[in-house]
Amino acid sequence: MIKPNRTLSTAVLTFGFVFLYIPIVSLVVYSFNESKLVTVWSGFSLKWYTAVFHDAELLHAAWLSLKIALMTAFASVAIGTWAGYVLARMGRFKGFTLFTAMINAPLVIPEVIMGISMLLLFVAMEQVFGWPHGRGLVTIWIGHVMLCVSYVAIIVQSRVKELNKSLEEAALDLGATPFKVFFVITLPLIAQALVSGWLLSFTVSIDDLILSAFLSGPGSTTLPLVVYSRVRLGLNPEMNALATIFICLVTTGVVGVNFWLQARERRRFAEIQRAFAPADAAGVAPQSAGRKAQKALDPASA
């Protein structure tokens, strides 16, 4: 068996991280540049951050993108959780292949094709039904949900397949309804997958450019469209400041959610250990009880 070269692996990994993060670091640094030239440092200044918060067009576009991203994340998690659960637990029912293809289609169809098809659909619906009245927030939201549901469904499907079915079966044997089992047992166990799907949907929506370009209308220009239109005219330090603000917000949110999930897992593990505590009195070693608790918490680790 060929052993990997540790030095070569470290060098490749280092090059990959440098290639990815050096541009981001330089963008953050030059957001504090006083000069209008984004590649020439002339001194430290916060004037571009002040300019961002006084730019009405940019703030309106950012608020619109934030609203659409939040709406998309919640709707995608709700629909994608149902779709992923059906794919993981309902077996090969009649129409399973078609259902799977419809869920996975947005992952492989180019966004340009999706944008054109949805634009034609909304134009035809407006002519026949009188809705939607033009294109704006609602049409962009529908397009983003259609795109993000697939990501959530795949994440939830993979997590549900790893669950220990005996926990749900035990709840059913004790008299719980399938509806209650899903919300009391299954959802807490797949909470991390739901949070991951929510964050991914939010990220995909807030920086989507192609679908938004097809589905937007007058007065509904999202932030990526504004940034793209301005960057085409030349680089602007104001864009560096805006990007830095987003980087800080996203990093803070991801780190905060990660700490919350870790604390939640520790609490659940402690509760399960306490549930197995009577086993110690019966002569079972505490380490054995701890392993049982870990297996109940995450059967994949057994």
Rank of each mutant, 00 (worst) to 15 (best):
I185N: 10
G84D: 05
G197M: 05
V149S: 07
L87H: 03
G115T: 06
M90I: 02
V160I: 15
L107V: 01
G136P: 01
G130R: 03
Q192P: 09
G130Q: 06
V195K: 08
R89E: 15
L187T: 14
V108L: 11
A153F: 01
V152E: 00
P178V: 02
E111M: 12
F93M: 10
F122Q: 07
V184C: 11
L194A: 06
S196W: 03
F183C: 14
R89L: 11
P188K: 04
S158H: 02
A171R: 03
W198Q: 05
P110L: 02
L163S: 02
Y151G: 06
K94H: 08
L121E: 07
F179V: 13
R159N: 11
N104E: 12
Q157P: 04
I109F: 07
G143T: 06
G134L: 11
P106T: 11
T97W: 13
I155D: 03
A105D: 05
G115F: 04
P132F: 10
I116N: 02
E111P: 06
G134I: 07
P110Y: 05
G136Y: 03
A170N: 11
A88K: 00
A105Q: 00
L147W: 03
H133K: 15
T177W: 12
I113T: 14
F122T: 06
G136T: 03
I154Y: 01
E111W: 11
V181P: 08
R89S: 13
G143V: 06
W198R: 00
K161L: 15
A170E: 09
I113K: 10
